[in-house]
């Protein structure tokens, strides 16, 4: 299996001695989009900066691009494309000037440069903005220009640092879809840093979930969601119902009743279930009282107390119970999985 970008034992310590990244190995496949997901301060931006060449790993960490050791190369000699959170468009240049900047540095003749700039602007669907000043652009337009600028140099890897965070919710949704399509069509290797789990799930071919300077789990979005490796991943990605009880005779006993204990060891047990792993069922063996119900458009999210030690969340597309109502629940496949303690 060939590798586009590889980190070998890369750690990073700040000048003041704080450890931003623990020794990390990571291999990114050619053409894949890797989403790096985690809360702020987890080291995800440090990871991106190590790949970019804006920061350098503590020895003996190495960074390789297609098996070539680039550890000592600064960013300007790595041929990466980078989209910054603030976009960092050059205010002294117009849109075309920004997009063509990297080509100018590479001494691409003007005629060809103009043609390539025009092509990228067309691909981003903003050809009419070529001679606009960057401070006259909307957030979404800035994002497109930043992307065009990074891609115009045909980088070995595209690095995106929270590229959608600065946008409002609706535009973010729109550009997320567009970006996913673009990355797929171009087949470019990319690393995408975000704190938004929905974004990571939607855009990443694989997702690396990070916490406290460490990659907790690396896998396909579905694996991360369905088979979280740690309690942190389970809680950070999606909605999690924590079911703490005791397993006796193949049944998980909870404060409000019981559920089948598929695969859970006898004794005190901690299980996790996504909202869709529980359903309203008049014949159900778990009872609770509705605390609140939220209308989400295509479904209703219901929070139930008394069934487990903590409130649990169940979603339904059918008629939702009202607050105060007593409801019965049963397990929907797949069954609740054992939850790691830490």
């Amino acid at each position: 299996m060939s590798v586009a970008v590889e980190l070998r034992a890369c750690a990073f310590t700040h000048a003041d001695g704080t450890r931003a990244l623990l020794p990390t190995d990571l291999a990114i496949r050619p053409g894949e989009t890797l989403a790096v997901l985690g809360p702020s301060g987890c080291g995800k931006t440090t990871l991106l900066r190590l790949i970019a060449g804006l920061a350098f790993p503590d020895p003996p960490g190495r960074v390789l691009f297609e098996s070539r050791d680039v550890t000592s190369l600064p960013i300007e000699r790595r041929n990466v494309g980078m989209v910054f959170q603030s976009y960092a468009l050059f205010p002294n240049l117009d849109v075309a000037g920004n997009v063509g900047y990297g080509l100018r540095l590479r001494n691409v003749p003007k005629a060809e440069r103009d043609a390539r700039v025009a092509r990228w602007l067309a691909m981003m669907r903003i050809p009419e903005l070529a001679h606009r000043r960057v401070d006259q652009l909307s957030g979404g337009q800035r994002q497109r220009v930043a992307l065009a600028r990074a891609l115009a140099v045909e980088p070995a890897v595209l690095l995106l640092d929270e590229p959608l965070t600065a946008l409002d919710a609706k535009l973010r949704e729109e550009l997320r879809v567009e970006l996913a399509g673009l990355l797929r069509d171009l087949g470019i290797t990319s690393v995408f840093v975000t704190h938004d789990q929905a974004e990571a799930m939607a855009l990443g071919d694989r997702v690396a979930v990070m916490r406290a300077g460490k990659v907790e789990q690396l896998g396909a979005p579905e694996d991360i969601y369905r088979r979280p490796a740690t309690r942190f991943v389970a809680e950070f990605v999606g909605v999690l119902n924590v079911l703490a009880g005791e397993v006796r005779d193949g049944t998980l006993h909870l404060p409000g009743g019981s559920l089948p204990a598929n695969g859970l060891a006898p004794g005190p047990a901690l299980a996790g279930a996504r909202p869709e792993q529980l359903r309203f069922d008049p014949e159900g063996t778990l009872t609770g009282r509705v605390r609140a119900a939220f209308f989400l458009g295509d479904r209703v999210r219901v929070v139930i107390e008394g069934a487990a030690a903590n409130p649990i969340t169940v979603e339904t597309t059918g008629a939702a119970p009202r607050p105060g109502e007593v409801v019965r629940l049963s397990a929907a496949p797949p069954a609740p999985w054992p939850l790691p303690d830490a």
């Binding site: 970019a52 804006l54 960013i75 300007e76 980078m82 468009l89 050059f90 990297g102 540095l105 990074a150």
Partner: peptide
Amino acid sequence: EAARSLGA
């Protein structure tokens, strides 16, 4: 940093 990423 942006300029460096583009090779400056």
